[in-house]
Amino acid sequence: MKRLAHLVILLAVLLLLPLAAQAHKLSIFAWPEGSEIRGEVKFSGGRKAKNVQIAVQNAADHAVLAETACDENGAFRFALPDQAQQARPDLLIVANGGEGHRGEWLLEATDYAQARPVETAAPAASAQAGSASGAGLNEEQIRRVIAEEMSKALSPIRQSLAEHLNPEPSLRDILGGLGWLIGLAGLAAWAQSRRTKHS
């Protein structure tokens, strides 16, 4: 009985350790801001990754569209090259932390294109509008300014939304895993006892 109590204490200590501590996984997330795309790289547990290489790929054919690296705080930003802005592919943003650490984030065209149509459409539209009517030009400009400001204002919200898609392991996850292990042990014990009964 005393031994059992000791084991329970040991298990409890092992269980409580992770509540105070954290773990590692390279997670990356990105969101559009104005004409740029911003992002952050961090190890799970909140430790910022430093100087990690970032490659921006076309999600369809994995062609590299742009390359950058994050700064000391794990933040990065880049502007898409003109060609990609025209084609608007889904972007697969890959962080390679070395040592086998790798994280990726899919930024779909519909997510970042919202911030963009005014940008790419503007030169053509304003040229048209300029020849057609003066009022249209102003409207285009106003639209563009509003879109840019909105995008900037929404940036922190987009950031925290993206962060929430990379949840930290919670107590529920830990207890769920332990439950599975106990269940598997029970299954194995049952199989063993059947085998010994039959033989």
Binding site: L14, L15, A23, I174, L178, L181, I182
Partner: peptide, 17 residues
Amino acid sequence: MPTALLSSAFFVASLVH
């Protein structure tokens, strides 16, 4: 049972940063 116990320890140890 010891195997499952140690597997549990391994499972949560990765959270100790």
